[in-house]
């Protein structure tokens, strides 16, 4: 049964999974080629700036992959009013587990290509003194971020409209409060506080805001 669900999810998402995997493979190559043009040692600082700038692409890519795989797992169920799932002789939790596992398998190619891209790009680059490559660490961070993004979007997509509405309402309240505080001339910064709360330890999205550096000191 897992194989059938995996095959169906692969058919729904292969159109963009392959391009995303190619992008994941190519980012490290451009990161190093664009950033490093010679062996003059003041280039090294420029290289680090370029790597940091390109590195911002990784959390965005992880979030995009998580969003696409997480939501596409449920999109056809929603369209078919869950008839297919209801006729299966399985409890809901088991069906969810199958869908979740199939999604995890589909995340693997993107994770592997990011790792291979990072590995090959650094393998064929002569780095200046004092700078080292961290392809394994980068791939590990990317794997965790993708996994988390996928789980979050999978959970939201699997829920009811009421649940999605509740999430949107919370976000809306935060934004409106910030706007009102701004109009009232208050120094209150709800958005920043909320962002800090979810991205700084022990916030759930901490892994997204770390150092996405393929090469570093």
């Amino acid at each position: 049964m897992l194989r059938i669900i995996l095959y169906s999810q692969w058919k729904w998402s292969r159109g963009w999974l392959l391009p995303v995997a190619v992008v994941g493979f190519a980012i490290p190559y451009f990161m190093l080629r664009v950033g490093y043009s010679g062996e003059r040692y003041w280039d090294a600082a420029g290289l680090l700036e370029q790597v940091a700038a390109w590195g911002r692409g990784y959390p965005a890519l992880a979030a995009a992959i998580g969003l696409l795989v997480g939501t596409s797992a449920w999109i056809h169920d929603h369209r078919g009013d869950h008839v297919y799932a209801l006729v299966l002789p399985t409890p809901r939790w088991y069906y969810v587990l199958l869908r979740y596992t199939a999604g995890l398998v589909l995340l693997a190619p993107a994770m592997i290509t990011v790792f291979l891209g990072a590995l090959t790009a650094t393998w064929f680059t002569t780095l200046p003194a004092g700078i080292y490559a961290y392809p394994i660490q980068l791939a590990a961070r990317f794997m965790l971020a993708t996994l988390l993004a996928y789980s979050l979007f999978f959970a939201i997509a699997s829920g009811t409209q009421r649940a999605a509405g509740a999430v949107l309402t919370i976000v809306g309240i935060v934004v409106v409060t910030q706007l009102l505080a701004g109009i009232a001339g208050s120094d209150l910064n709800v958005l920043e506080a909320a962002f800090d709360r979810i991205t700084i330890w022990p916030g759930p999205l901490e892994v997204f805001v770390g150092r996405w550096m393929l090469v570093d000191l």
Binding site: H82, V96, A140, L148, A155, A163, W201, P204
Partner: peptide, 23 residues
């Protein structure tokens, strides 16, 4: 600790999805 927090939230969200009353 960051890896453990991430995995914790992965498990939590997976449980939330499994417990959803969608159908």
């Amino acid at each position: 600790r960051s890896a453990w927090v991430t995995l914790f939230w992965v498990v939590v969200t997976a449980f939330l999805a499994a417990g959803s009353s969608r159908w």
